[in-house]
Every structure is written in structure tokens, then in C-alpha cells.
């Protein structure tokens, strides 16, 4: 096991913390376009983290993964989402299942939970930093929570993408990156998922005149 300089691992921790911060910003943000921008920002931080990991471990294929993240998550997906938002003409989330301060408190609780869960795993070794795994887990949980708490299909999609970012961070931080082929597969999946969800959102708008997913309950009759 290679030992990294403490500065390197601190930088990775810092980047992971920034990822987590953007998560909180997404939870606190009501404007859909700002959510998408924040997601793009988060992905940019992810690229930074991945590049750092690649540099520190010397794993060449993580560079490729980072570059792919940059192209797909920082540029393509946000652009697709902005198009969807433009077409739907929904600017902000007015009604939420959980209001913002409560949502923040719950997210804070999720972070604590993630740290408590990750604590016994951390000493098992082969992890670059002490807390990026826990942060990754926290991001996954918050992403999932966002999907539950929000009504609009677009923010749910952002929640899903955040969740995926968390998974990617976990993968790079904990296992020095998955095999390249797996990562490529995941990227492809995410891209397709986004496109499908975009189309699905448009269809939802056409069918119900709304992108509130709770309208789907009408379908049962």
C-alpha cells in the first residue's frame, strides 16, 4: 500500500468536502436551473478529485474516467437538463414534501449516519483518505433523499445524478477506481438514463400538464 503525503490526502478530503457542500446547496435550492448549475459545479469538483487521485496513485485510466466525467456530467447532461427546463417552463419548486430547513437538518443527520457507518470500514485499509468514503456514502444518501423530498421530475433527476456522483467518488476513493470498462459502462448508463428521463419528463408534461411525479398516482385506475 502506497503511503501518500498528508497534503495530498488533505486535498482530496477538501475536494470531497466541497462535493458535500454543493449537495447541501442543492437541497437548499428551489430554482431548478440553479440546481442544475450546482450539479455541474459538483461534477467539476468530482473531476478535480478524480484527477488528484489519478495523479497520486498513478493510475492512468482514472484520468480517462475524469475526462469522461468532465465531458458528460459537466457539459452534456446539464445542457440536456437546461433544455428540458426551458421547454417545460417550470422555474422553481413551489411545493415540497419536506421544507428546506427540515431537509437540511435531515441531510445533516444523514451525514452523521454515513460517518458512523463508514467508521468501522475505514481502518480496513486500501483507502486513500480517511473520510472521502464516508462523504461518498453521505452524498449517495442525500441524493436519494432529494429524490424522495422533491416533486418535480427534473429535481428528482438531479437527485439521481448526485447519487451517481457519490458512487463515483466512493469508487475512486475506496478502490482507486473501478476497471475502465466498468466505468465506461456506468457513464453510458447514466447518459442513457438522463436522456430517457428527459424524454419521460416531456411526456409527463404532455400527459398531465405538470411535471409533478405525484400525478402518476392517477395512473392506477
Amino acid at each position: 500500500m502506497q503511503v501518500f503525503s498528508s497534503i495530498g490526502s488533505q486535498l482530496i478530503d477538501l475536494c470531497s468536502a466541497l462535493l458535500l457542500l454543493t449537495c447541501f446547496a442543492i437541497v437548499a435550492q428551489r430554482r431548478l436551473s440553479a440546481c442544475v448549475d450546482l450539479f455541474a459545479l459538483q461534477s467539476a469538483f468530482l473531476v478535480l478529485t478524480a484527477t488528484l487521485v489519478a495523479y497520486l496513485t498513478g493510475n492512468q485510466h482514472i484520468y480517462i474516467a475524469a475526462a469522461l466525467t468532465g465531458v458528460i456530467k459537466v457539459i452534456i447532461i446539464p445542457r440536456v437538463l437546461r433544455k428540458v427546463i426551458d421547454r417545460l417552463n417550470v422555474k422553481r419548486e413551489l411545493v415540497m414534501y419536506v421544507n428546506v430547513p427540515t431537509g437540511l437538518l435531515i441531510s445533516g443527520g444523514l451525514v452523521m449516519l454515513a460517518f458512523f457507518i463508514a467508521q468501522p470500514i475505514i481502518p480496513l485499509g486500501s483507502i486513500l483518505t480517511r473520510d472521502s468514503l464516508a462523504i461518498a456514502l453521505a452524498i449517495v444518501l442525500i441524493g436519494l433523499f432529494t429524490m424522495i423530498a422533491r416533486q418535480k421530475a427534473v429535481t428528482q433527476l438531479v437527485g439521481f445524478l448526485v447519487l451517481e456522483n457519490g458512487l463515483f467518488l466512493g469508487a475512486t476513493a475506496a478502490t482507486h477506481g473501478m476497471p475502465l470498462i466498468v466505468e465506461l459502462g456506468v457513464f453510458f448508463d447514466v447518459l442513457i438514463a438522463t436522456l430517457i428521463a428527459g424524454i419521460y419528463t416531456n411526456r409527463l408534461q404532455d400527459a398531465f400538464d405538470s411535471v409533478n411525479t405525484d400525478r402518476l398516482t392517477i395512473l392506477k385506475e
Binding site: 447541501f24 451525514v111 452523521m112
Partner: peptide, 24 residues
């Protein structure tokens, strides 16, 4: 404004959490 100040509170709490986690 409560949303914004809620963010501030959570950030401070996380700062505290990180401090303890990082030191343990």
C-alpha cells in the same frame, strides 16, 4: 432567510462533525 441561515447552521454543525471524525 430561514433557508439561508439553516444552511449556515448545518455547515457549522458539519464543521464540528468533521473535526471530531478527522481527529478520531
Amino acid at each position: 432567510v430561514t433557508d439561508l441561515l439553516g444552511v449556515a447552521f448545518i455547515l457549522a454543525l458539519l464543521g464540528l462533525l468533521f473535526f471530531y471524525i478527522l481527529r478520531s
